[in-house]
Design a protein around this nucleic acid. Structure first.
Lengths: 337, 337
DNA sequence: GATACGGGCGAGAGCGCTCTCACGGGAAGC
DNA sequence: GCTTCCCGTGAGAGCGCTCTCGCCCGTATC
């Protein structure tokens, strides 16, 4: 009647088998069978035994932890608190991990400490890491030290990645605005250092080229304030703009506020399309039409690859972007009064 | 020139000391001194040695992981992805943990699996757990199995907690609306099962009583849709309402949309105050006046208690709520046009 | 009936680290 | 000069688990 937690030896003793057999049963490994399995399971239940993860990790060399790493590109204030995108990443991974009893470790790094912390994580025991917002150089460095890694953003070529079709999403957004009859389409892009932002810009430019339209754009940080200020600037320079494509919902929400403050009605006077389909999109008023990336699925796919897959350098899997229509691009004739 | 990771034995050999001394130096423990410290540090640097966390945890029985647990009360879709509040919790904890090399494990549980998963976590090795959205019964159960736990919501009395002044915050919000001249103040509350929601309602009722005003309120889930629908209902029943206090920004954003759709101008016709000061508050249009809880500080305090403190059952620390003024309650006379 | 084979099971050796304890030598006390 | 003490150091015993290896016994093969 010891007070301390039962160990596998206790289980083995109670079940009347060897520790090895107990281990086999507990891990569902072959080589133990029939009545013994039952006895071990009974003992586990009776003692309330729970395997010690640290011991498992140490003995097997195979940990059950997945790391999620984000290096704030332009949000020194800490990305987690300010961008709802990351919540979707975690939410997407959770069910899979829960399912196999693996755990999720979160790392939010700033640029200053990133390199060192990344080395630390790479050197540690991990099932693998999912990189979220990170520069190609850092991603490549991490990949060199730890092969079990998947990026959720387009990054250095060698690093395996689940990439969303940012280019196609932006292209579809611009095309949609054009189809609505908009001819003075402005864009607010994210910081050029972000690979996502860069891809969204490419899609934007391609669409413009195809449509034979001129570029009107501004660059801003991925924050509401960034979007607000950029929209104000655009409005000052191009008072006749009738649509804004914004590379992130958070910025788009700010842009809508700036447009409203500038006396424009959304969507009657100006159509707005955001990007990400985050909580910011549904909280904006009016709710934002946005480009939805299957973030949860991408995160889940990353975990699946990490856990069960064969991670080849340069592995890439693309996910489609989808335009989610909400009021910020509602047709003028579809609005009452 | 082994290919595998250096161990502490390698460090000891290179430094010409015993493993024990190497361990002492690496852990900054007393009992090793002078030149030996230098030699060990040199060896560590030369080999690129990183301690194996699993082995450390096993040998010392003292893990370096803090668990964050949230049980979605009314958001079966997974809270993480949909409520920006949690991002702030994680962001608040991160710097402290990074500082001492501890890690953050995230658990998002659903009600069905909560009990079992909680037992699992309680039985595992952890520096302690921070409970976020959880019912008192589950919190108490967890606390019984694992003393190192701090809740971020008011919960069972025995469970140590960092609690925000939800009552005072709601009271201040209602009082502020009244001071603005609003006399038909409605409220949208969260689900009664949530202790936070309950406290906010208490503050609301207290203020009403003090002001001699009648209660107009509705209950909804902590989602945008919940807020939207509740606002619509309130508007139908009380077309003359001139203010709405909403127990969560996400709901408040929905409420603003419903008010706008119902032909009301915010803040000219109806003042709106949200709760939490989350990203939803700044993304709403107009941006929401809201009750800010020092979530980051609370989370940090919880971690500090877990790491360094003396956790007595029933320990409680209260944090003030602060009204953040934004446009959704701007004075009518302060608006142009 | 003797030999070969195979699958179930147990013994035991680590995984990399922490921590206790015993030892040795130098400083302090008489 | 001897004892006492203490501090710095090293040896070694685990922490709880996984996994390899070899034993044993039951079945198949001739």
């Amino acid at each position: 009647m010891s007070r301390s937690k039962p160990t596998i030896d206790d289980v083995a003793r109670v079940a009347g088998v060897s520790r090895a057999t107990a281990s086999r049963v507990i891990n569902n490994a072959p080589g133990a069978s029939g009545p013994l399995r039952v006895r071990v399971h009974e003992a586990v239940a009776r003692l309330g035994y729970r395997p010690n993860e640290a011991a498992r990790a140490l003995a097997s060399g195979r940990p059950r932890v997945v790391d999620v790493i984000a290096v704030s590109c332009n949000l020194p204030g800490g990305w987690l608190g300010s961008n709802p995108y990351y919540g979707r990443v975690l939410a997407g991974m959770m069910p899979l991990l829960e399912g196999i009893g693996a755990q999720l470790r979160v790392h939010a790094l700033t640029h200053e400490s990133a390199a060192e912390s990344l080395d630390e994580i790479a050197a540690g025991v991990t099932l693998g890491a999912v990189l979220s917002d990170i520069t190609p150089a850092l991603a490549a460095r991490f990949h060199r030290r730890c092969r079990r890694v998947v990026s959720l953003v387009p990054t250095a070529e060698t690093v395996p990645a689940m990439v969303a079709d940012n280019i196609g999403g932006a292209y579809a957004a611009i095309t949609h605005l054009h189809r609505l009859g908009r001819r003075r389409i402005a864009a607010i892009h994210g910081p050029a250092a972000s690979t996502c932002a860069a891809d969204r810009r490419i899609g934007h430019l391609r669409a413009l080229q195809r449509l034979g339209a001129a570029e009107i754009s501004a660059e801003a940080a991925f924050t509401r304030e960034g979007g607000y200020d950029a929209a104000q600037r655009l409005l000052a320079q191009h008072p006749d703009l009738d649509a804004v494509f914004v590379a992130c919902d958070l910025m788009a929400a700010g842009a809508v506020q700036a447009l409203t403050a500038g006396g424009r009605r959304v969507p009657e006077d100006v159509s707005v399309i955001g990007f990400d389909d985050s909580v910011a999109a549904i909280c904006a008023n009016p709710p934002l039409t946005t480009v939805r990336l299957p973030v949860e699925e991408m995160a889940a796919a990353a975990v699946r690859l990490l856990l069960f897959g064969d991670i080849a350098p340069g592995h890439r899997q693309q996910f489609p972007a989808e335009l989610v229509l909400r009021q910020s691009t509602a047709r003028r004739d579809a609005r009452g009064s």
